[in-house]
Simulated assay, not measured.
Amino acid sequence: MNDICLSCFARLPDDSPRTGCEACEYRLHTWLRELPRHLPLLQDMLRPDTGPAQRGGTGRAHAPLPVRVDVLDLLGPGAPVLLADPHGDQTGGVPMTALLMGWARYLAAEIPAVRVDAHGTIHIERCEAPGLRGGADVARLCRWLDAYLPYAATRPWWDDAYDQVEQLLHRVRRLTHTKPLTRTKDAPCPECQGWSLVEKEDELHISCTLCPARLTPDEYATHRAQVMPALAALTLNMITPKPEAEAAA
């Protein structure tokens, strides 16, 4: 058993079977939900941008490729691990489907498959692949992995899966120019009293940008219910015209 999360090094509860904390599990959960949403945009980006014909030479010895290689590197087939590159002339990384399928196979291999034959005998066998109906595309693989995250968060390889999915999503976001949605909360921070609490789409906790304070959604709701009525009353008192001021006017 670990005392700290293998991904963020946060303190884990005593005697916890976890190797990844709840916050990191939630973060990976949101990443797996986000990845399929990028597919339509990536597919649209696969074809290089076209423009008006230009006169003169382009400096190319051959015609350009009909697809964007950086996008194809994400959408195309490939191995679930990086191949040896002794000459250092390879770029890119593991494609989306290959990486997700690699982790799905690895996880499935740790979970025994149980079947009962025609004679009623129970057989426990090694599971070779995840059970996916309709094909192993990105959306189905993400849903399958998401369903097994509570188990994955107890395994010694948790940080490897976490890091690789994070790196994959960074590659995708770099191409699609997207980033997680961030919302500013209206209640002040309970520790530094600053108006600096933010909620990020891929974070379990609401965090302060000025101090280390972190609140769960329930903790923030309780805090907001305690402080906002008094702040609202103070604001109304400040903006409401006073009778003495009206009489003097």
Results as ranks from 00 to 15, higher is better:
residue 52 P to T: 09
residue 7 S to P: 00
residue 45 M to C: 05
residue 132 L to A: 04
residue 81 V to N: 04
residue 166 E to V: 07
residue 177 H to D: 11
residue 204 L to V: 06
residue 32 L to T: 05
residue 214 R to A: 15
residue 162 Y to V: 06
residue 34 E to G: 12
residue 111 I to S: 02
residue 200 K to G: 03
residue 248 A to Y: 00
residue 102 G to Q: 05
residue 182 T to C: 10
residue 29 H to L: 09
residue 11 R to M: 11
residue 106 Y to W: 04
residue 36 P to R: 13
residue 111 I to D: 04
residue 100 L to I: 12
residue 12 L to Y: 05
residue 198 V to E: 09
residue 16 S to E: 00
residue 70 D to F: 01
residue 209 T to I: 06
residue 62 H to D: 11
residue 31 W to H: 14
residue 103 W to I: 09
residue 115 R to A: 14
residue 71 V to K: 01
residue 105 R to L: 06
residue 14 D to A: 15
residue 244 E to K: 12
residue 130 P to V: 08
residue 151 Y to I: 13
residue 166 E to D: 11
residue 147 A to C: 08
residue 125 E to I: 10
residue 226 Q to N: 09
residue 218 D to H: 10
residue 171 R to C: 07
residue 108 A to M: 06
residue 55 R to G: 13
residue 124 I to R: 11
residue 54 Q to V: 14
residue 239 I to E: 00
residue 67 V to T: 11
residue 71 V to Y: 00
residue 61 A to H: 05
residue 25 E to R: 15
residue 103 W to K: 02
residue 35 L to Q: 07
residue 131 G to R: 15
residue 196 S to W: 03
residue 74 L to H: 01
residue 56 G to R: 01
residue 136 A to D: 12
residue 48 P to A: 12
residue 60 R to V: 03
residue 13 P to G: 04
residue 151 Y to E: 05
residue 1 M to P: 08
residue 224 R to M: 04
residue 207 S to W: 00
residue 48 P to N: 13
residue 29 H to K: 14
residue 82 L to G: 10
residue 232 A to Q: 13
residue 162 Y to P: 00
residue 74 L to R: 01
residue 68 R to C: 10
residue 218 D to E: 15
residue 49 D to W: 07
residue 54 Q to C: 10
residue 102 G to A: 06
residue 3 D to G: 12
residue 132 L to V: 14
residue 7 S to I: 14
residue 228 M to C: 08
residue 162 Y to N: 11
residue 13 P to W: 01
residue 60 R to D: 05
